[in-house]
Design a protein around this nucleic acid. Structure first.
Length: 581
DNA sequence: GCCGTTTTCGGCCCGACTGTTTTCAGTCG
């Protein structure tokens, strides 16, 4: 019985094959063929197993007899011979080298053939020792760029995206809870605070008998190695490479330890300062008035003992939360349940996987009242940007869907319009005016100076038909730094123009960053937590966006997609009326 | 390796940028 192969597995392997073939120096069009096949499957609107069972694989665009045969082999046996062989013929470190900006399959192959470089470490050595300068295509600038890239890759290697770390942590928690050895088991650390990337997993258990939970934790199947072991703490490295710490506390000390391990460091320091002002000493074992322990059964009671409302973990970043809690002006943080609909949704008309009807069905199933469709604009050729005719077809379709829904559900007409290098939007005003809302987004020319980029984005914000600014910094967590831009000036401009700031909920974006939300909110900006979804799975991204909004102190009233259909419709209409176009 | 026919093999998306090449190759989105 082989492991069930998902379409995501196949897509990943086809993308790998594309890279491997290119690194081998084979026909580049063969590499592209694998990538094309991956894109087809990525946007497959039906069940892969069904397609295979019916022998229809090679009928799909971009999948011919050879690739179909390989996929069938994979589905039947769980492995693909060709892929395994190819992978074995290339140093495993070459995949990591691809993460260094400026290095692609060709240059990596050259480094390997001329210099025998297989890993990031070897490349760093060669770059520092000036050994690369003789290679064609490598000069001093390239050397500096490589060294910069290596620093970034090293930093990324230590961290994980939040959902990945959360899944690992939940599996550990589940195993500990299932064993029933402890009174309480909780996550702590940056994971509990909802940080966008996580360096290690912190877990905490309460028990009077620490030996057995410690032994259980150290022997879990997902543990690769035990890296530290004391009376109250076990440190391990998991199979996936991430580190996890289990702290063991007594039931009585649990709330204090939970608060302490949740952090942040800055929050704890500030809170200890407040305690000291009240004549109270605070550490991970308790609150003490002199020698006397102030008993607290929960975090709520700890905060109360310090004269504070409960501070949700997301806010514990030393951003003024203690003052706010003291003055009773903590925000009433938005929850997933406050969200009424999703904007920024892609369809098959550009690079999405689902048709509008399927998107509507899924949105209704999840209890939403509306969707805002926003495919890519024409300049995004690589993503299948819409031309005038495609827009017309889509609008006719949306009108038909809305008519059929009879008001029970609403689809808004939107577009994700590229912000061109000079700051203009990707269509003329006549076309833009046909949409209910316009999402402006930078998708190209990332390497401008901060001055130029800021001017570019601000010009787009000043367009009267711009409704939302998408992923304001363009970052990809653990993969690409934000482009150079004066984000404060961008937020000022958005506030002045009434443009909504997107909190892109894709776990690799989470952009606008929560650190900027407070500033923007004070300037009077509104926000939209947008899934930027291309697949059915994308519906679940909303969770990460809401987490980010909560870290940014946002309430339901700050988010336009917490408005009801009529109110949002009126909001869009006001924007368009003000544009006078 | 796929596609579409020019039914048997030639073309495959592309524009911009970067660094190094003085006419272009590789990378990126």
């Amino acid at each position: 019985m082989s492991k069930r192969i998902t379409v995501e597995d196949v897509v990943r392997i086809l993308d790998d094959l594309s890279l491997l073939v290119e690194m081998k120096g084979e026909n580049p069009f063969k590499a592209r063929a694998y990538a094309n096949a991956a894109r087809t499957l990525e946007t497959l609107g039906e069940d892969l197993e069904g397609v295979i069972a019916q022998g229809r694989l090679s009928a799909l665009r971009g999948i011919g007899p050879a690739i179909a045969k390989k996929i069938e082999e994979l589905a039947a046996t769980g492995t693909m011979r060709y892929y395994e062989d190819l992978k074995a013929s290339i140093p495993p470190g070459h995949f990591e080298l691809l993460k260094i900006p400026g290095l692609g399959p060709k240059k990596i192959r050259l480094l390997y053939e001329k210099m025998g470089i297989e890993t990031v470490g070897e490349l760093e050595y060669a770059a520092r020792e000036n050994l690369l300068l003789d290679l064609p295509g490598f000069g001093e600038r390239m050397r500096d760029k490589i060294l910069e890239g290596i620093e970034a890759v090293k930093g990324y290697r230590e961290r994980r995206l939040y959902p990945e770390a959360l899944a690992e942590a939940e599996a550990l928690l589940g195993a500990l809870r299932a064993a029933g050895l402890t009174d309480r088991v909780e996550m702590a650390g940056s994971l509990r605070r909802g940080r966008e990337t996580v360096k290690d997993i912190d877990l905490l258990v309460a028990t009077d008998e620490p030996v057995r939970p410690a032994a259980l934790f150290a022997s879990l199947p997902s543990v690769r190695a035990v890296t530290g072991r004391g009376d109250t703490k076990v440190s391990v490295r998991l199979q996936g490479g991430i580190n996890a710490d289990l702290r063991i506390s007594t039931p009585g000390e649990f709330p204090f330890m939970l608060h302490h391990l949740t952090g942040s460091k800055g929050h704890n320091t500030a809170l200890r300062g407040r305690a000291k002002g009240l004549g109270i000493t605070m550490n991970e074992y308790g609150l003490f008035a002199g020698d006397r322990l102030i008993p607290c059964a929960s975090e709520e009671e700890i905060f109360a003992a310090l004269g504070l409302r409960f501070i949700p973990p997301e806010l514990r970043e030393d951003m003024g939360e203690i003052e706010a809690a003291a003055e009773g002006r903590l925000p009433d943080l938005v929850t997933e349940g406050d969200v009424r609909g999703l904007l920024h949704v892609h369809t098959r008309a550009s690079d999405g996987a689902l048709e509008i009807e399927a998107l509507v069905a899924e949105a209704k199933r999840r209890g939403y009242a509306y969707l805002g469709i926003s495919d890519h604009s024409r300049s995004a050729a690589y993503a299948g940007g819409l031309d005038r005719e495609a827009i017309k077809r889509q609008h006719d379709l949306i009108d038909a869907v809305n008519a059929a829904e009879g008001g029970a559900f609403h689809v808004f007409k939107g577009i994700e319009a590229d912000i061109l290098p000079d700051g203009r939007l990707d269509y003329d005003d006549e076309i833009l005016a046909a949409f209910d809302f316009v999402i402006a987004a930078v998708h190209s020319h990332f390497t401008m100076s901060a001055e130029e980029m800021t001017r570019r984005v601000c010009r787009a914000l000043s367009h009267p038909l711009t409704t939302i600014l998408a992923h304001p910094t363009g970052r990809l967590l653990l993969a690409r730094e934000p482009y150079a831009v004066d984000i404060r000036r961008v937020m000022d401009e958005a506030a002045a123009r009434g443009v909504v700031l997107e909190i892109n909920a894709h776990p690799q974006r989470l952009d606008l960053d929560w650190r900027h939300c407070l500033y923007a909110r004070r300037r009077g900006c509104l926000f939209a937590v947008n899934p930027d979804l291309h697949t059915r799975e994308g519906f679940s991204y909303l969770r990460w966006g809401i987490m980010t909004a909560r870290k940014g102190w946002l309430e339901a009233k700050d988010l336009v997609n917490c408005l009801g259909t009529q109110e949002l419709s009126a909001f869009f209409a006001r924007r368009r009326a003000a544009a006078g176009l």
